[in-house]
Amino acid sequence: MKTFANANAHDLQQAVTLVQQTRQDGRAASFVGGGSDLLALVKERIVAPDVLVNLKTIKGLDQVTLTGGDATGMTIGGLITLDALSRHPVVRRQYAVLAEAAETVATPQIRNVGTLAGNVCQRPWCWYFRNGFPCLKNGGNTCFSAAGENQFHAIFGGGPSHIVHPSDTAVALVALDARFRVVGPTGERVVPAAEFFILPQQDARRENVLGPEEALAEIQVPSARPGTRSTYHKVMDREAWTHAVVSTAIVLEMDKQICRNARIVLGGVAPIPWRLPHVERMLAGQRITETLAAKAAEAALEGAKPLARNAYKVPLTRGVIHRTLLALAART
């Protein structure tokens, strides 16, 4: 393992400036939250930063702030731990999908140290990338999964890289129409969740719009409209301590039996959280019956392009959407 220096940041502006200066000196720098992902990558020599800029020492970035009373949205500091997020009473009540997603991550130990920003910005868990193959994500020019072992890879949006986005919370955040506040050396910007994540076609080296000197500061979630209910369903190959094979985040705005508005996002199937606007449109203004749920699940898989070893994800995803949608609609 390469040695590195640790720099404790006391505010975000200082943190990004530090990263910028380090890079100008020709050295590599990384932001670090809980370090549960970054340190593993350092140990495996996937990344080799000279300086780790520790964001956990920044005060106040681990809070949930309700903007203007209980029901008009909230701002979540990027440094909140996944455990604190999943236990937060307002999050549990109004944004169940996010609390549930955070709760399914890895293990209690990782949720105790892992931060929301770190979870959203974690690097892919593709075994080629993590084992140091010279793949696109590691600076090379091939995706080894394309003609290799691609059991867990993308069935949507793949190419030239076929990774799936690993974050559970990201899927929920896209379903909540969240907005990400990003701070860089020259200022800040707010990016809608759906635009934060980028496909490999756009840039195969990274998974989101963040430049190397930009940090994810906080996440704004709009208020939940009346009648909103939401849930996160994650399919795993064991009961804990592993990423989603397939997952779905569903948010429904219900007016008695009628679905006014639906948002459906898939995890584990694409290089980004995979939103299904055409399926959402099918559901708007409808009563969600068994038949409609089946139709929606069928439509969701239109255009799927499985690789040699992951065709099972097609029926699996169909089953997950069908069941989760019905169960959520039937909830009273």
Binding site: N131, F133, F144, G148, E149
Partner: peptide, 11 residues
């Protein structure tokens, strides 16, 4: 599991 082309273990 191994990568068939390179013989490298993946898991």
């Amino acid at each position: 599991l191994y990568d068939r082309r390179t013989g490298q273990p993946l898991t």
